[in-house]
Design a protein around this nucleic acid. Sequence first.
DNA 1: GAGATTGTTATCCATTTGGCTAAGTTACGC
DNA 2: GCGTAACTTAGCCAAATGGATAACAATCTC
Lengths: 109, 109
Amino acid sequence: MDNNLDLFFAAIADPTRRAVVERLVEGPASVSELHAPHQMALPSFMKHLGKLEEAGLVRSVKSGRVRTLHIEAAPLADAEAWLNRQRGQWSRRLDRLQALAEANEEVSQ
Amino acid sequence: MDNNLDLFFAAIADPTRRAVVERLVEGPASVSELHAPHQMALPSFMKHLGKLEEAGLVRSVKSGRVRTLHIEAAPLADAEAWLNRQRGQWSRRLDRLQALAEANEEVSQ
DNA sequence: GAGATTGTTATCCATTTGGCTAAGTTACGC
DNA sequence: GCGTAACTTAGCCAAATGGATAACAATCTC
């Protein structure tokens, strides 16, 4: 029911950020670990991390000079729920249509 | 496995466009029907419809002067699958951690 | 066939996004 | 305490986004 789906979906619309998520579901990681596989300059990359955190998809704590990020499962579930609701609605509609079609067949027999 | 998740997630990151999707899962509708509940000017609104179609979430056919849009279920399912994979991975990790913790308890008893 | 409906095309504009470099700051490690 | 590692801040830039208006095109309806 809560609505930061805007930020969430915007966050995972970017391939770099989806890659970060795919890494983080394996477990927490530091900024440089996350950055390593990506070409771009660190400050650019940090902006992506910022978006993820802003969307509530990721949390982070800094200890000493290293910041460790971990994923937050709840928003993933919320977004999945929204998608699932839409698909559910759509398929309920298909069912109704099919029922209607069958009823019509009976009549015309 | 196909990867237009970029466009798909970007498409549903916007509240106007999510509202359109929520309407379209109830059944097809014309441009003006879809536009009616929204404040914005029609050309602005049409850009949103364009994004949805570009993302493959929506198809449309024009007959006479009215264009009718309907939703395409497959991309919804693909996106849901991606989210579900991430959550799955994350919870598998939690399970491993818990197993580890329990193993440790046994040792220390 | 005149007028209203329903889209469409063409511009314009401010803001956001996603990249960069350069120059800090903070904490280890020797 | 010096140097390096690990971010962080500031500022620049081009392109994309999300809105607007104005004018056009096509098709119903009377």
